[in-house]
């Protein structure tokens, strides 16, 4: 199997606190949609931020395309990996197009502005998430969901091989959640896109996602195909909740807690 992202026995702690990630090894296969699940505070966001190069593990090593992430220049890594943070609060009223255009910055030099090609790419990225109509709006006037869609468009403008999305659907309505997942699946099929998506939307995973990683208390508790991980016993363990129930309906897995 060809892995694009790998964490090998990584450990991370904030300042002198207890370890948040404890000896986790995860390998994200190229061209697959992967979900990262687990209860609040189990280390999902920390792990994704390590993959984005924002945090450096104290032990173990992160890999991108087989090379050590710490040895890849940041701007080079930014051409390969797009990251969408959990929240994107903005202090200044930038226009949506300005925000998405910053996704082109790994490709433009320090003293150059983006050219027509970059503008085209930014607009394409907005169209891909059905947000072209927002282009000249100010981000401070958008709803939380719209801001999240704009952040996804910025990551797409980077033309990455891989997307890291930290709870992208948290502020999205039903339709936009489904649209986002469909867009990711379409890009996987057409461009061999790899994605690692932190999510609490378990019912969106099956049947679109290829693989699930489940964290519990900073350790990898389970991984595998959706049908194997989204079961009563595994989820009860991952979420430490004996009331979790699952049922497969029309090829999807429905999940709830009694």
């Amino acid at each position: 199997m060809n892995y694009l992202l790998e964490a090998r026995a990584v450990e991370f702690r904030y300042h002198n606190g207890p370890p948040v990630i404890r000896g986790v090894s995860v390998a994200v296969p190229r061209g697959k949609l992967c979900a990262l699940i687990g209860s609040n505070g189990c280390g999902k966001s920390t792990l994704v931020r390590m993959f984005a190069g924002l945090l450096v593990p104290q032990k173990g090593e992160m890999y991108l395309g087989g090379a050590r992430l710490s040895e890849i220049p940041r701007r080079e890594a930014a051409k390969q990996v797009g990251y969408v943070p959990q929240s994107s609060q903005l202090a200044f009223p930038f226009t949506v197009l300005e925000v998405v255009l910053t996704g082109r910055s790994p490709y433009t030099s320090r003293f150059r502005f983006e050219n027509q090609l970059d503008r085209g790419r930014a607009l394409q990225a907005l169209e891909a998430v059905h947000a072209a109509h927002l282009a000249s709006r100010r981000v401070t006037e958008l709803s939380g969901g719209e801001r999240q869609i704009v952040a996804v468009a910025r990551a797409l403008a980077q033309e990455p091989h891989c997307l890291l999305l930290d709870e992208p659907s948290a502020a999205l309505d039903l339709k936009h959640r489904a649209t986002l997942v469909r867009t990711l699946a379409a890009m996987r099929d057409s461009q061999n896109l790899t994605a690692l998506v932190v999510t609490h939307d378990l019912h969106l995973i099956d049947p679109v996602f290829d693989h699930i990683f489940a964290l519990r208390g900073g350790e990898l508790a389970a991984e595998g195909k959706p049908a194997d991980v989204l079961t009563d016993s595994v989820l009860a363990d991952v979420y430490d909740d004996p009331f979790v129930r699952t049922r497969r309906i029309e090829g999807r897995t429905m999940i709830w807690s009694n």
Partner: peptide, 23 residues
Amino acid sequence: FAFARDLHLLAMGEDSAGALGVN
């Protein structure tokens, strides 16, 4: 002025700037 681009990205958030290659 040399850091104007980095500041432009930072003004939109520290994490997103870091992920776009800003040190």
